[in-house]
Simulated assay, not measured.
Amino acid sequence: MLIRKLYDEELYKAVDLLIECWNDDYRGVVLTNTIDREEKLKYLTSWINEKYDDIRRIYGAFDGEKFAGFVGASIAEREDSDDGVELSYLFVKREYRRRGLGIKLIKSIVDEFKVYGFRELIVYNWHEVSSNKYYLYLGGKVKKQVVQSPKGKDTLVDVFVWNLADIIKTLNDMLYARDVQHGGLHVKKKLDESIIITTDCSNDDYDCVCKGLFKHNVMKTEGVLRKPGIDINLYLKTSDEETIGAILCDTFNYCMYIDVMWINEKYRGKGYGRILITEAERMAREYGCIFAHTCTFSYQSPWFYKRCGYEVFSILDDYPDGIKQYFLKKRF
Rank of each mutant, 00 (worst) to 15 (best):
Y134S: 12
F113C: 10
N132S: 14
W162V: 01
F160H: 00
L156T: 13
I122H: 13
D158I: 00
K151H: 00
L138C: 04
A177Q: 10
A177D: 13
V161C: 08
L136T: 10
Y116G: 08
Y116I: 05
L138P: 15
V146D: 04
Y137Q: 12
L138R: 08
F118E: 07
K169V: 11
D154V: 08
E120F: 10
V161T: 11
K143W: 12
L121R: 07
Y116E: 15
Y176Q: 00
V123T: 01
I168L: 15
Y137C: 10
V159Q: 09
F113S: 05
D173Y: 07
D179E: 11
Y176F: 14
V159I: 02
D173Q: 08
W162P: 11
F118G: 04
G139Q: 09
G152F: 02
R178L: 10
L138D: 02
M174Y: 11
D158M: 02
Y124D: 14
L156N: 10
K153A: 00
V146I: 08
K151P: 00
L138S: 01
S131F: 03
G139S: 06
I168F: 13
L156C: 05
K143E: 13
A177F: 03
K141R: 15
R119N: 12
D179S: 09
F160K: 04
K114T: 14
E120C: 13
R119G: 14
N163Y: 01
R178M: 15
L171W: 01
W162Q: 07
A165R: 10
I167W: 03
Y116C: 11
N132C: 06
V161R: 06
D158C: 00
L138K: 04
Y116K: 11
A177Y: 10
T155L: 01
R119I: 10
V180G: 03
K114P: 05
Q145R: 07
Y124F: 09
K144Y: 01
E128D: 15
D158S: 14
D166T: 08
K169M: 02
K114I: 09
V123L: 08
F113K: 10
L175W: 01
N132H: 02
F160G: 00
K133S: 15
E120V: 00
D166M: 04
I167T: 12
I122A: 05
Y137H: 13
N125Q: 15
L175A: 01
F160Q: 09
V147I: 15
V123I: 03
L164W: 01
P150N: 00
D179C: 11
N163S: 08
N125P: 01
F160M: 04
A165F: 08
Y135T: 07
L156K: 05
S130R: 09
N172P: 03
L136S: 12
V180K: 12
Q148T: 13
H127P: 07
S149E: 04
G152S: 03
Y135Q: 06
W162F: 02
S131Y: 04
F118I: 09
Q145F: 08
K133D: 14
V129Y: 07
K143M: 15
D154Q: 10
V161N: 14
Y137I: 08
Y135E: 13
V146T: 04
G117H: 04
S149K: 01
Q145H: 02
M174T: 09
G152I: 01
G139V: 14
N172H: 09
W162K: 02
D173R: 15
R178H: 06
K114C: 09
E120I: 06
L156G: 06
K144T: 12
N163F: 03
R119D: 14
K144I: 02
A177H: 05
Y124Q: 11
R119Y: 03
V147F: 06
